[in-house]
Write a protein that binds this DNA or RNA. Sequence first.
DNA 1: TCAATCCCTGACCGATCGGTCAACTAGCGT
DNA 2: ACGCTAGTTGACCGATCGGTCAGGGATTGA
Lengths: 201, 201
Amino acid sequence: MPTTTTADDLRRVALEEFASTGYHATSIQQIADRAGVSKATVLYHFASKEALLEAVLSPALDQLDQILQNVGLAGLRDGGAQRALFLEQFVDFLLEHRSAVYVFVNQSSSIDAPVITRAIREIELMATFFEEHVDSVEQRVRFGVALGGAAYLLAGAPQVGPAITADLPELRSALLAVLGDLLAVDPRQPAALASASITTD
Amino acid sequence: MPTTTTADDLRRVALEEFASTGYHATSIQQIADRAGVSKATVLYHFASKEALLEAVLSPALDQLDQILQNVGLAGLRDGGAQRALFLEQFVDFLLEHRSAVYVFVNQSSSIDAPVITRAIREIELMATFFEEHVDSVEQRVRFGVALGGAAYLLAGAPQVGPAITADLPELRSALLAVLGDLLAVDPRQPAALASASITTD
DNA sequence: TCAATCCCTGACCGATCGGTCAACTAGCGT
DNA sequence: ACGCTAGTTGACCGATCGGTCAGGGATTGA
């Protein structure tokens, strides 16, 4: 079993480039150069640029899907402990897949691909988890700011955001506090906010 | 005096396209088509695509510059009423220039142009207005979430955000409340939060 | 030894990109 | 009537885009 395959390298490089440079601004040639292969090799492993995008985003979407299904919709509408637990899983998800989240949150409007449509669908679904009163403008503002803000902070703003690699636990707790504030998750449940293992992209 | 000139139409169309479709994903041909002119006409009024971008973003950056200078840096570090006043001006700025803000907040990392460099500089400057303790991770998280979240909400997420054109005053007050929360602006100063006239792009 | 399969590559394709240019039109001052 | 200028355009340019294809090693099983 090889430690890294060419396809894995391409996925990794492509994710970085799509997030930092933007999907349209990133050419297959750039990805090939950074991975040390030819452009034709990229298109050998992935049928098209769009297929590469899907291969890059799908793992994150799959995990988000799992989180949404595990928690369940009905339980969250009542608020309380399950809600804090969901927030924790969500923050860990953001930290682990921050680059992917940044792509399908901040570039969804400019990319026309099935995997982006799927991402939009899941974001809408997730919004219902926090919106008890769909009619409330402030509730919508809070969710939108939390989602877009977290994505921007974690992947889009090296000049504003904190140094991410260093002091990850502190970043995690800060995110939990800030997003918990925004999403009206009751913070008085220290047991639910216990640590969980997180890994990097 | 004509009500609308061709150059004005191009600026307006280009801003919409850059914000909704993305700078790189928007071709000069698209802008020309939407404005009802030829591609050569676009390049007659603006020397290059980059010059068009600058013409589109500069008004917003000029206004942001003015806000930052008017309020002054020293006065804000003490917190208090001036801080609430600044937040109000900032929210009105976001609402008036939401498309421009979305471009240079969420696409800055993918565009290599002087006007984007200027935007990054101003965002960094603005960050200092709210960061009393630069070392605090949570403070940085709060500012980043507020900035990126507001930009995302106002221009990037039609599927999540509220209907913006309708009920603009409610959106404004909701933004004031949420961002005030995030940026630790003392909400107990109702006089400072009085209404002010705002216009649309 | 041979064929098959897996990776990988350079050469090439049509389309589109941002940008240039000469020419045309319409108005306007003289 | 004239020339000047501003505005607009189609034709065209080189470069790069995403994508195709035939073929060249290297490994493997028979």
